[in-house]
């Protein structure tokens, strides 16, 4: 039978409601004013861990020991830009390519002339696209044509969500255009064949690296030079080799302060100082340590041994990001037509 007994001693409902009320949202939102959020792309995890630590130390020294807490989030560059559009409160964006910041500017989050506000087109570090292969290069991959040989599987992320993937794609496109008799049609044919060799399209560069490194998928990973060097030197020192193709693209991942958000958070000064710090000698040295090519020529020269020489072409030679994005990666663009349905 039913036992009539009360559970009034701080019953369950009371307890849950009281705790719920006491721990509401304000503490979570509060940090946005005292901290700084850097929304970044995938392979910069290790880089910004160091930058954030060193910048906040420097900031504390010059600002009367009031420390600033910096947080950095990572993901595919396009996906990250979209999460900022959807309301992620980024003070600073450090994305994989300029177009993803242009999108934010188009929606009024920052000035459309953002790229002229910092030196070097707002790009503190450059990189290139290289090949990461299994130790000893068993499939004998040295140049772009080798990628579409029979039995070669290529790992590259999804160009619709990843910045690195778009650089990979455009590096291949640019190479194909530069071949004797190369036209948009031959380039398209090359890329169609190339993507027929791609078994998995991860949404970010780090996911692709995981597929190659940890899941053992594929024979060659198209990767940011920094991501490839990280994998080859730090993650699996005896498992991989880096192959630098004779010609590749000069990747320029830019940075910007998100005007509308820093005004709302009152973080304009610290955000400005943060992006400026990336161009400082310390910032450049940290970048070099994480295999990003410093734009400061002196520091680049000092680290020459880390970065192999290769011929590069830049995005301007392909018509600039706005045009490239529209022709290749927009819905119904060239990428849609070559990635088999």
């Amino acid at each position: 039978m039913v036992k009539v007994r009360s559970i009034t001693r701080r019953g369950l409902l009371h307890a849950t409601m009281a705790t719920g009320g006491a721990m509401a949202f304000p503490p979570l939102r509060a940090w946005a004013a005292t901290g700084l959020l850097n929304v970044s792309y995938d392979p910069t995890r290790e880089l910004y861990q160091d930058i954030d630590r060193s910048f906040s130390r420097q900031w504390a020294q010059t600002h009367g020991n009031s420390p600033v807490q910096i947080r950095t989030s990572h993901g595919g560059s396009g996906a990250q830009a979209r999460s900022v559009l959807e309301g992620a409160p980024a003070d600073v964006v450090t994305l994989g390519l300029a177009y993803d910041i242009d999108i934010l500017a188009q929606h009024g989050l920052l000035a459309t002339d953002w790229q002229g506000r910092l030196p070097h087109n707002s790009t503190p570090f450059t990189s290139t696209i290289v090949f990461l292969v299994r130790k000893g290069n068993p499939k004998n991959i040295h140049d772009w044509p080798d990628l579409i040989r029979d039995g070669v599987q290529v790992i590259t992320p999804n160009p619709k969500t990843s910045g690195g993937a778009r650089w990979n794609y455009l590096a291949a496109w640019g190479w194909a255009l530069r071949q004797p008799g190369g036209t948009a049609d031959t380039a398209r044919a090359y890329l169609k064949t190339l993507f027929a060799h791609v078994p998995v399209l991860d949404t970010g560069a780090r996911g692709a690296t995981n597929s190659f490194v940890q899941r053992g998928l594929g024979d060659v990973l198209l990767a940011w030079e920094d991501e490839a060097l990280l994998a080859a030197r730090d993650i699996g020192p005896d498992q991989f080799d880096i192959v630098v193709p004779p010609i590749t693209i000069l990747a320029e991942p830019p940075v910007a302060v998100v005007d509308r958000n820093v005004q709302a958070h009152g973080t304009t000064d610290v955000a400005q100082a943060y992006v400026t710090y990336l161009f400082s000698d310390e910032g450049q040295k940290i970048g070099a340590r994480h295999y990003f090519r410093p734009v400061n020529p002196t520091i680049l020269d000092a680290n020459r041994d880390r970065f192999p020489d290769t011929a590069t072409f830049d995005i301007a030679s392909l018509g600039g990001w706005t045009r490239v994005q529209k022709d290749h990666f927009a819905d119904g663009g060239i990428f849609d037509s070559i990635y088999s349905r």
Binding site: G78, R82, N158, K160, P199, V200, L201, T203, S211, R215
Partner: peptide, 21 residues
């Protein structure tokens, strides 16, 4: 493995589509 046509599950494809906007 999350490979399209092979080991890609429907919920993951939803997430991918969302990330593609």
């Amino acid at each position: 493995g999350n490979q399209p046509f092979h080991t890609e599950i429907a919920p993951l494809l939803i997430v991918i589509r969302l990330q593609e906007y």
